[in-house]
Structure formats: structure tokens, C-alpha cells
């Protein structure tokens, strides 16, 4: 239970900030059609980063952030209850890590670890698998309850859009962080 609060709070703040940015640029500004919002979903980066680096302790904060944005800031954004799809989305990264561990690729921090959390290519693989789980399972759920973001049934195009959108969102956030944190990165490397 050590550090549970600080991990959860960090995850909540990071995920909320990304959700607000994503929501402003893709949904509320009206610059692009609403359905295009899922073509670059920034908050997936928070799910990946927080679950990979902070583990299960970040999940309560992530889940709260997934619900807080849509329910508190934009309560008319969705026409269905988000409790279950949000849980699926947050748990998609854990599911990806569990699957990789099941097939003999547990996550570690050394160069000998099959999956190294300091290697961005390995994080890319986790992102891809979690995006796959998220896209597939959330849309299966939406189909089952006959709800959707658009006035049509969830279809394979939407699954694909979720999959690509989560990966593009993570890529954009990672590149932004790498550029934004440049001085910190250079300083931390010069010390090692």
C-alpha cells in the first residue's frame, strides 16, 4: 500500500490533463468531427505510462480520471454509462502486461529482462497490445449494449480507429514529453 496515494494522484492529474487537452482540441473546439477524436486519443499515453511505471497502484487514479472528465467537465459528451468501458480501457494495459508475462516476457528494468521498461521499443509493443485489447473489448461492450459514439452500431472501422488512435495518441505524447523534458533528460544522462 506504500505510495498508493502519490501514484494514484500522479496518474489522476496526468490522465486528466491529457483528457482535457484531447477533449478541447478534438471534441469541444469543433475543428474536427467528433468521431475523429478517437483517431488520436492522448489519454491512452497516461494509461500506458502510469501502469507500466507505477503498476496497479496507479489504476484507481486512472479510473477516476476516466470518469471525472466525461461526467464532471463534459457531461453531455457520451450517451451511455462509462463505468464499464472506462474500466476496460484502464485495465487494457494490465491485460497487455499479463499476456506478455504469460508468454514468457515479464517486465523488468535490466537489459536482460525480456521486456525492459527503459526501452521505448518495448513500451511501443505494450502500447500496441493494450490498444488492441482496448479497441476490441470496448467496442464489443458497446455492441452488446447497443450504444455508440455515433448513431450507428459499433463496427470494424471504429475498432480500427480506436486501435490506431490509441497508438498515435501515445506517440504524440511521448514525442512531446521527450522534447519538453529535454533539459531534464540531458541532465539525468550526464549524471549517470
Amino acid at each position: 500500500m506504500k505510495n498508493l496515494f502519490i501514484y494514484s494522484l500522479t496518474a489522476f492529474v496526468f490522465s486528466s490533463v491529457l483528457w482535457i487537452m484531447w477533449s478541447f482540441f478534438t471534441v469541444q473546439s469543433g475543428i474536427v468531427p467528433n468521431w475523429m477524436g478517437s483517431l488520436m486519443y492522448l489519454p491512452h499515453a497516461a494509461r500506458v505510462l502510469m501502469v507500466v511505471y507505477f503498476g496497479w497502484k496507479s489504476i484507481p487514479g486512472l479510473y477516476l480520471a476516466e470518469l471525472w472528465g466525461p461526467y464532471y467537465l463534459a457531461d453531455d459528451a457520451y450517451n451511455f454509462a462509462l463505468w464499464i468501458p472506462s474500466a476496460i480501457s484502464v485495465l487494457s494495459v494490465s491485460a497487455a502486461l499479463f499476456s506478455l508475462k504469460f508468454f514468457g516476457f515479464p517486465l523488468g528494468t535490466t537489459i536482460k529482462s525480456p521486456l525492459n521498461k527503459r526501452n521505448y521499443k518495448h513500451i511501443g509493443l505494450i502500447t500496441m497490445i493494450s490498444a488492441f485489447f482496448n479497441a476490441l473489448l470496448v467496442n464489443v461492450y458497446l455492441s452488446q449494449i447497443h450504444a455508440n459514439f455515433e448513431p450507428v452500431e459499433a463496427d470494424i472501422n471504429q475498432v480500427l480507429r480506436f486501435f490506431v488512435g490509441d497508438m498515435l495518441g501515445v506517440l504524440v505524447v511521448f514525442i512531446f514529453l521527450a522534447m519538453f523534458l529535454k533539459p531534464v533528460l540531458q541532465q539525468s544522462q550526464s549524471k549517470t
Partner: peptide, 9 residues
């Protein structure tokens, strides 16, 4: 660890 990953990228 996260910063190391970003630095590698």
C-alpha cells in the same frame, strides 16, 4: 525509468 525510456527515443 520513464525518463530513461524517453531519452532513448
Amino acid at each position: 525509468d520513464a525518463l530513461n525510456m524517453l531519452y532513448g527515443m
